[in-house]
Amino acid sequence: MFLIRRTVYHSLVEREILFTGIGGQGVQLAARTLAEAAMADGRRVQLFASYGGMMRGGNSDSFLVIADRAITLPPVVGTAWAAVVMHHEHAADVWAKLRPDSIAIINDSVVEPNSRPNNSAVEVVEVPALDIASEVGSPLAASLVLVGALVARTDLVSADALLDGAAKVLPSYRSEAAAVNREALAAGLKIGETTHPAWELSVA
């Protein structure tokens, strides 16, 4: 059987967001919270989660694509529009993939000062995420503070959808963390004004 297909070339707005950290830092939770929020906004998502067999301490990366139409990109993207960096250990690949017009949200509490984007055109937002998360009552929610900050700077998803995402991604045995996670997101949303609108070019 022959299935012959023509590729369709369209000017699709796809937003690629890279997440990196080490196991236990909440990287996957943050990526999924953002993905759920984008879906609630009516957008399409694809999320590739890469972690090294170990639940704690190994690398933990996520490749999230949010788009207005069905996503054709393969799981690992070669270049990206944004990064959420929880730890410097595996950040080199992320820095290398950031396009000049991109934005990087950095966990300033952990990431070493010499670990920064290769390209000086990338907008860098340094967030004392651990301190902020501790203030709202859960240092474990630092990754969500960063996601909140990303949304504050980009309007990538609506604030309501993001806050609602907190409860959606938790398994039933961890549902009691939803309230504090929501606060961590809210605290992140207060970090700054929109500098990098995600969907200005959108032709949805």
Binding site: M1, L3, I4, R5, T7, T72, P74
Partner: peptide, 26 residues
């Protein structure tokens, strides 16, 4: 079974399966 993408006039024909085909498709 196979899926053929833009092969009729192709000078370079890629052959790939599974996930690798998604990279090739892109």
């Amino acid at each position: 079974r196979a899926e053929l993408v833009e092969t009729d006039d192709a000078e370079v024909v890629l052959v790939a399966y599974g996930t690798m085909a998604r990279y090739a498709d892109a």
